[in-house]
Write a protein that binds this DNA or RNA. Structure first.
Lengths: 136, 136
DNA sequence: ATAAGAGCTAGAGCCCGCTCTAGCTCAAGC
DNA sequence: GCTTGAGCTAGAGCGGGCTCTAGCTCTTAT
């Protein structure tokens, strides 16, 4: 199936600007075909690739790293260990991020509980003790 | 306990530049005391606050949002529901992020497994079938 | 035939979050 | 008393990742 850039944008959540930008930046593994009028025509495979890029970006992989991966794929078979290394490195980054998020989340959840408790007491007693029970 | 800015930087992982920047940006709930020579002197409470800010930033809360929270705290008691709302909103953002990360992670883990398998087969058979088994 | 709408390129612009510089002051150790 | 090192301010600069603009072309529906 062939798809126009607008289509692809709509279905991947990226903007058409971003799609052209990614292409210029060399994030695509192969050239995007053009129709006789010079417009980009995306294949289903292209869309799949764009979706991968979107996930990689969403999980914080820098453009630069994605380009390196795309370069390897473009080079063709033979460099699988290198590709694997890039993916694994990113896997670890994601795991670290998740850890950081969960630490932050539990800190915030704690504060939320404190506020909720204080508010419940407040509506019950209609009185605030200022900084009596800390917790900003 | 009183701490110099270098100290605080070391123990929070932020740079001294970032600490001054945060202060300028109004992320602090109260003014930072200065010594007779004009240097910042951080209390334990200040450090705790800085640590909160660091966690909020790490989890992707924009400077702007942290400032709003700090503004509320600075205003004093009475606006707890507003503070709670900000925290809850951020809590949700974090949860959404974690979701996105885990989707991305599973996509990548899948690819990693594919490569590992292909490599294992490759070393076994010493032959690559090119794009026979897709998966970039 | 025409007007609307999607696409194209090259390049400028923007936002965020720091980071760095210049030029100065201060406190402490040798 | 002098050097070294930490700190200060105001403001410039930067890197990443888009986003937007201008000016043009092409397709399509009326």
């Amino acid at each position: 199936m062939a798809h126009g850039i607008g289509d692809v944008a709509a279905r991947t959540g990226l903007s058409v600007h971003a799609l052209r930008f990614y292409e210029r930046e060399g994030l695509f593994a192969g050239p995007i075909v053009r129709d006789p009028g010079g417009r980009r025509v995306y294949s289903d495979d292209d869309i799949e690739w764009v979706e991968l890029c979107a996930r990689l970006r969403e999980t914080g992989m820098p453009i630069d790293a994605i380009r390196k991966y795309a370069d390897l794929v473009r080079e063709g078979p033979g460099n699988e260990p290198d590709r694997l290394a890039l993916l694994q490195a990113h896997q670890e980054r994601i795991e670290a991020q998740m850890e950081a998020l969960s630490v932050g989340l539990s800190m915030i959840s704690y504060k939320v509980r404190v506020y909720e408790k204080r508010l419940a007491e407040g509506t019950a007693s209609d009185l605030w003790t200022g900084r009596a029970a800390s917790g900003d």
